[in-house]
Amino acid sequence: MSNEKTSDLTIELKKERAGQIKFAIGFVVVFFALLVLFHVITGGQFLSGDKITVVLLHSIWPTFAAWALCFIFASGYTDLSLGGIMVLGSVSACIFGNWYGYIGVVLGGLIVGLVLTFINFNIFAFTKIPSWIASIILALIYEAIAFGMKMGASTKSLVDTELNRDYRLLGKLPWSFIIMLVCLVIVYYIYNRTTVGTNIRAIGGNADVSKALGINITKTLLGIGVISGILVGIACFMQESYAGRVTVKTGLTSINMILQPMAIYLLAKVLEKKMNIIIAVPFCSFIIYAVFNVLSSLGVPSGTLQESVLGLFIVVFGVIGQMGVKGVVK
């Protein structure tokens, strides 16, 4: 009886493994087919070394922000103030970078990202205000702080001082790509293979069960603050290293900073049933920025129209990804 069960399970596991391999092959084929399609659409311009480099470089900092969102959303919380934190973190990376060089760039972004995100999760954990409401208030505060630093300045100078060109190496290839690959491995293990990652996913799945099984909800929330804070911090200095500057936002427009990471998260979430979400994120980030690049090449005005096309692209992708899934997808 027991042997029968074991062999049934082995067969099932083999089937599952075969299914995963089949999906991985299919995914790679679709991924390259999309690149070829983009190449054709742009009249043979897309698959050039320059274009691929631009897309890859642009897709790296949002990958970190999207990974932070993976942890936050997995726990069932929402943080709309991440854009505000990113603005302050990027400003800090720029100021301290210009003062202290690379150490200033890294620590300037990392510390602001980590401290502010950690503060957010303390507020979520201890005040019990719904996180989406609390995070909107926090976004307004962070925007006000950034704006306060620029009080009385002209609109033009709301764009912060540029980061010295000598300290932008982390935003260039191969360094940015290497940092992303190293972080991919670390983030994958934290999310999937550590107790804190498991606990984060557990409280998002069923907080009552988690609590009853001895998981400390407050401690886990603070853990999210630390992990996602580090990822936001990295996103801050990577963004500053790549772009060299950031514009101070007001009136909740800082949320724009995380719209694209949210789109990446959403696309990766669609693939989650077949592919680990942490691995899916960099691919989705690349695809999304490739779409933007193609749209620019086709002369579609940047901003709202490009984002509408991106939204449509995600919806279509989402519908295809959820085919055959039973029940309600929340």
């Binding site: 550590t194 107790t195 996913r201 799945g205 069923n206 001895g214 998981i215």
Partner: peptide, 24 residues
């Protein structure tokens, strides 16, 4: 917990005994 696999649900809250260097 629906978002975790069956095996993980069996030992949820007690994963430490399977953890080495922080990895389960």
């Amino acid at each position: 917990v629906g978002t975790l696999p069956a095996g993980m649900n069996v030992f949820l809250g007690r994963t430490d005994k399977f953890t080495k260097f922080g990895i389960i």
